[in-house]
């Protein structure tokens, strides 16, 4: 595969390390430390960390350009064809309204 890096152009996928679903950007926040062990917190982290849509089709996912510019990327890829539809720097996606579109 070739990843269309937004800064560097096409780079071989072997330079990258894959993590998984880009919903991992949406880490639940715990503002009150007293809530760390609450059922609601554990449910939220459990769903965040463990449960996946795992779609057969368009999937937003995280790749790290380890043997390159060390950037984390959000790649939008079709898991049935491997076609890549979009690629963006994760730092630009994080904090944006990613959560809404991923769920």
């Amino acid at each position: 595969m070739q990843i269309p890096h937004p800064l560097l152009g096409l780079r071989d996928a072997s330079e990258f390390v894959y993590l998984g679903d880009a919903s991992l950007l949406n880490r639940p926040s715990v503002d009150d430390p007293a809530e760390l062990g609450s059922d609601a917190t554990l449910d939220a982290f459990h769903e965040y960390l463990h449960l996946r849509h795992n779609p057969a089709g368009v999937h937003k996912e995280l790749w790290f350009h380890e043997q390159g510019d060390r950037s984390w990327l959000v790649v939008t890829r079709d898991t049935t064809t491997h076609e890549i539809l979009d690629c963006a720097l994760a730092r630009d996606v994080a904090g944006a309204s990613f959560g809404a579109e991923s769920t």
Partner: peptide
């Protein structure tokens, strides 16, 4: 300039 990998070495 580019950073890449050759024979398993950065």
């Amino acid at each position: 300039v580019a950073r890449t990998v050759i024979e398993h070495t950065g």
